[in-house]
C-alpha cells in the first residue's frame, strides 16, 4: 500500500526534501576516483625521492595537471559527502551538527581551491624549479 499522494510520488522526495542527489554524487565521484586514485598511487610510487625540479616537471606536465585537478575536485567532493554522513550519524546536538557540517564543507572548499591553484601555478610556469636544500 502506498500512502503517498500522486504529486509526492512524482516529486520523489521525502520529508527531508533531498537525499538522492547526495547518494548519486557519492557514487559518481567514487566511480571517477577509481581510475584517478590508481593513477595517483602509481605516479607517487614512481616519483618517490623526487627533488623539487622533478616534482615541478611532473606536476607541470599538462596531462598530470588535468588529472591532478580532477583528482583534487573529486577527492574533496567525495570526502565532504562522506564526512557529512558520519557527522549526521554521530553528532546529535543540532547546533554542533550545523557547526561541524559548515566547518567540513568550508575546509573542503578551501583545501580544494588551494590545491588546484598550486597545480595551476606550476602548470602555467609560475614556479622556478630548484634542487632544494
Amino acid at each position: 500500500m502506498d500512502f503517498k499522494t500522486p504529486l509526492a510520488r512524482a516529486r520523489g522526495l521525502g520529508s527531508a526534501k533531498s537525499g538522492v542527489e547526495h547518494w548519486w554524487a557519492q557514487r559518481w565521484t567514487a566511480l571517477a576516483l577509481v581510475p584517478l586514485t590508481v593513477w595517483f598511487v602509481i605516479s607517487v610510487i614512481a616519483h618517490i625521492g623526487a627533488d623539487h625540479t622533478a616534482a615541478v616537471a611532473w606536476i607541470g606536465n599538462p596531462v598530470t595537471a588535468v588529472l591532478l585537478t580532477l583528482l583534487i575536485a573529486a577527492v574533496f567532493h567525495h570526502g565532504q559527502l562522506g564526512l557529512q554522513v558520519v557527522i549526521e550519524d554521530y553528532v546529535h546536538d543540532e547546533r554542533w551538527k550545523l557547526v561541524s557540517l559548515f566547518a567540513v564543507k568550508g575546509a573542503a572548499i578551501v583545501l580544494a581551491v588551494a590545491g588546484i591553484l598550486a597545480v595551476l601555478r606550476i602548470a602555467t610556469g609560475g614556479v622556478t624549479p630548484g634542487v632544494g636544500a
Binding site: 627533488d51 623539487h52 616534482a55 615541478v56 606536476i59 591532478l68 583534487i72 577527492v75 574533496f76 570526502g79 562522506g82 564526512l83 558520519v86 583545501l111 588551494a114 590545491g115 591553484l117 598550486a118 597545480v119 601555478r121 606550476i122 609560475g126 614556479v127 622556478t128 624549479p129 630548484g130 634542487v131 632544494g132 636544500a133
Partner: peptide
C-alpha cells in the same frame, strides 16, 4: 576519515611545490 586527514599532506605537498625548493 583517515584519508580525509591525509588530503592535508597532499595539499601541503602541492602548495610547497608551488612555493619553492625550500618549502618543498
Amino acid at each position: 576519515i583517515a584519508m580525509v586527514v591525509g588530503t592535508l599532506l597532499l595539499v601541503w605537498w602541492l602548495i610547497a611545490a608551488a612555493a619553492g625548493p625550500e618549502a618543498f
